[in-house]
Computed example of a mutant assay.
Amino acid sequence: MSVPRAPERQWVPLDDRGLAYGDGLFETVLVRDGQPLLWDQHMTRLARGCQVLGFPLPSRDELDRLPGQAGPGLRILKLILTRGSGGRGYLPPASSLPRLRWQVMAFSPQPLRWRDGVRVRHCRLRLGIQPLLAGLKHLNRLENVLARAEWSDPDLADGVLCNSDGWLVESTCMNLFWQREGRLETPLLDDCGVAGTLRAELLAHLAVSEVKATPDVLAGAEAVWLVNSVQGVWPLARLDDAEGGSLATWPIGRAHRHFQAVAHDLLGYPVGFAE
């Protein structure tokens, strides 16, 4: 079955500020049979990003029409919203005309990672601190690109990132949760990092503390998970240091599955096995 795509004339001019400066935002939305998952949470984050960056959000009616273009099955809708063109150098125009681009892509999750867990490593790169942009899914992602370039081993699913002060933040593309002494915790994202939509829902549904924690916390945790609104929940089966040495391993047990069940219910995914 062919996958619907965005209109062909979605070219972006060279003076687009998103292309030139990363002056914009994006959202990656899981869509099942034309229905977007966690859509209100994605729109809330997009609206907050527009408020912080200081340009107008497209009308909700315009945005709400897009998931219906995805068609049947499981799809990814990617939205990119830039400030548009104009201004002088870094100085933005006094009145912005934002440019919205979107694309629909076929998607299949990775159920073996749900079931068996994943191997993850610590990254050498440290995220810069910028509280004004903390939580936003903005287009400036060079730190994530450089962190992801640290390894090529296909057995490594992701890398854990700290900020320049040494506090845990996230992985290169997912949020981070762990259980310590029976308590669920996740990094406090007050100075950098992306506040994921699934993370927001888990904070609403479960008793989770947002904390500042050093990376050694993970090796001593009873369970660790990576989560996002597209892939769902990957339990950690092994954690490595930045040189590939094993720091900790976990059997995937009841605690892993309970947390996964709550998250996957929000996305329509099963727990730990293929559909």
Rank of each mutant, 00 (worst) to 15 (best):
M1R: 14
V3W: 01
V3L: 10
V3A: 03
V12R: 14
V12Q: 14
G18S: 10
L19E: 08
Q35E: 15
P36Y: 07
L38Q: 03
D40S: 14
T44L: 14
R48I: 06
V52D: 07
P58C: 08
R60D: 12
L63C: 08
P72R: 07
R75Q: 11
L77D: 10
T82W: 04
G84T: 05
G86L: 08
G87Y: 02
L97R: 15
P98I: 08
R99Y: 13
W102F: 12
M105H: 15
F107V: 08
S108L: 14
P109D: 10
Q110V: 13
Q110D: 14
W114G: 02
V118G: 08
V118M: 07
V120D: 02
V120M: 09
L127N: 10
I129G: 02
L136E: 07
K137C: 00
R141T: 02
L142F: 06
N144Q: 15
A149V: 01
S152R: 15
D153T: 01
A157F: 08
D158G: 08
D158Y: 01
L161T: 05
T172L: 05
C173Y: 15
L176T: 09
L176R: 05
T186K: 04
P187C: 04
P187Q: 04
D191I: 12
G196S: 09
R199D: 09
A204S: 12
H205Q: 15
L206V: 01
V208G: 03
S209I: 05
V211G: 00
V211K: 04
D216W: 09
G220A: 14
A221C: 11
W225I: 08
Q231R: 15
G232V: 09
D240V: 00
D241E: 03
A242H: 11
G244S: 09
G244H: 01
G245S: 12
G245A: 14
L247E: 05
L247H: 00
W250S: 03
G253I: 04
G253C: 06
R257P: 06
R257W: 09
Q260V: 06
A261D: 10
L266A: 14
L267V: 11
L267C: 03
Y269S: 08
P270V: 07
A274N: 10
E275I: 11
